[in-house]
C-alpha cells in the first residue's frame, strides 16, 4: 500500500497543553514521567476516543506525575519509551491505512505487552490486537495476537449504550461495531454485560484482558466516566515507569454522578 493520504503531523488533542509531547524539564518530573503513546490518532480515534488520551494525561498530572504524550503515525519510528499505549476505533478506510505499519511495529508492541506496559485498545484497535479478523466474504486477516480473540465481520451493527461489571467496578460506555468477537478458550473478558451487546451479543462477555492489556468495544469515551478504570491503567503505567504508584487525592464526584446515573437509567 502506498502512503497516500497518511501524514505524520501530530493532530490536536483537545485541551492538551502545548509541549505535552516533550519530556519534563529537569527538576520538574514530579513523581516521575509516564510516557503515553496514542496509536494512529488520525486514522484510529473515531467517536471521541482521543478523549481517553486526554483523560489519562490530565489524570496523570493530577496524580502528580508528568505525562509525555506521543502520537504514533504510520511509518514513524515507535517512541523509545512507552508505559501506556492507547488506541481507538476507525473506519474501514482508517484501518486499511494502518495495517502495514502495525505489522512493522508488532514485535515491539508484543514485547511491551509481555513486559507489563498498560494498554487500552478500543473497538477497531481491539480487533487488530486479536488473533484474526474474518471478513464478511470469509477472508481471514491475521491480527497481532496479543489478545486471544477472533472477530467476524457482521452485516448487523451492534450499537447502543452499555453497562458492564468489571474488576474496576461498573463501567459505562457506548458500543458501535459491526464485528462480532469470540474469546479463545483461556481468554478472560474485560467485563460482563449488564446492558448492551458486548463482544457478540450472545455470550454476555465484553472485551478481553490479559495482564495489563485491555481490549473493549466501549466508546464514550470510556475513561472519563469510569475513573477507576483510568486509574488502574495509570497505576500499571506508573509501576512500569517508576516502580510504584502513589495516587493523588482526586475529586471524582462529577464522574461518579455521570456514571451512576447512566447505570441506574439503563438497568432500571
Amino acid at each position: 500500500m502506498s502512503d497516500a493520504g497518511t501524514s505524520t503531523r501530530d493532530i490536536p488533542i483537545l485541551g492538551e497543553p502545548s509541549g505535552s509531547a516533550l519530556p519534563a524539564d529537569s527538576g520538574h518530573e514530579g513523581k516521575g514521567e509516564i510516557h503515553l503513546v496514542h496509536l494512529y490518532p488520525r486514522e484510529m480515534s473515531i467517536y471521541g476516543d482521543l478523549g481517553n488520551t486526554r483523560c489519562l494525561a490530565a489524570r496523570i498530572r493530577r496524580h502528580g506525575y508528568v505525562p509525555v504524550v506521543h502520537q504514533h503515525h504510520p511509518g514513524q519510528p515507535f517512541p523509545e519509551q512507552a508505559h501506556l499505549v492507547v488506541g481507538g476505533g476507525g473506519q474501514d478506510s482508517g484501518q486499511s491505512k494502518v495495517e502495514d505499519d502495525l505489522e512493522r511495529i508488532a514485535d515491539r508492541l508484543r514485547g511491551l505487552a509481555a513486559d507489563g506496559s498498560a494498554m487500552l485498545m478500543i473497538c477497531g484497535m481491539y480487533q487488530l490486537f486479536g488473533k484474526a479478523f474474518v471478513t464478511v466474504e470469509g477472508k481471514t486477516l491475521p491480527g497481532l495476537g496479543i489478545l486471544d480473540v477472533t472477530t467476524r465481520g457482521n452485516e448487523q451493527r451492534m450499537i447502543g449504550p452499555v453497562v458492564l461489571s468489571t474488576d474496576h467496578g461498573d463501567v459505562v460506555g457506548y458500543e458501535n461495531h459491526s464485528g462480532s468477537t469470540l474469546l479463545g478458550a483461556g481468554q478472560a473478558p474485560f467485563g460482563t454485560v449488564r446492558h448492551g451487546q458486548g463482544n457478540n451479543g450472545s455470550d454476555g462477555t465484553e472485551g478481553a484482558v490479559t495482564d495489563h492489556v485491555i481490549g473493549s468495544y466501549l466508546h464514550g469515551p470510556v475513561l472519563p466516566a469510569n475513573p477507576l478504570l483510568a486509574d488502574a491503567l495509570i497505576g500499571w503505567a506508573a509501576e512500569q515507569a517508576t516502580g510504584g504508584f502513589e495516587p493523588g487525592d482526586l475529586d471524582d464526584e462529577v464522574a461518579r454522578q455521570a456514571q451512576t446515573r447512566q447505570v441506574r437509567r439503563l438497568l432500571g
Binding site: L14, G15, Y47, R54, Y174, H219, G220, P224
Partner: peptide
C-alpha cells in the same frame, strides 16, 4: 444517542 462527540469539541 452517543455523547462521545462532546470530546471532539474544545470548550476552552
Amino acid at each position: 444517542r452517543d455523547v462521545s462527540w462532546l470530546y471532539d469539541v474544545s470548550f476552552e
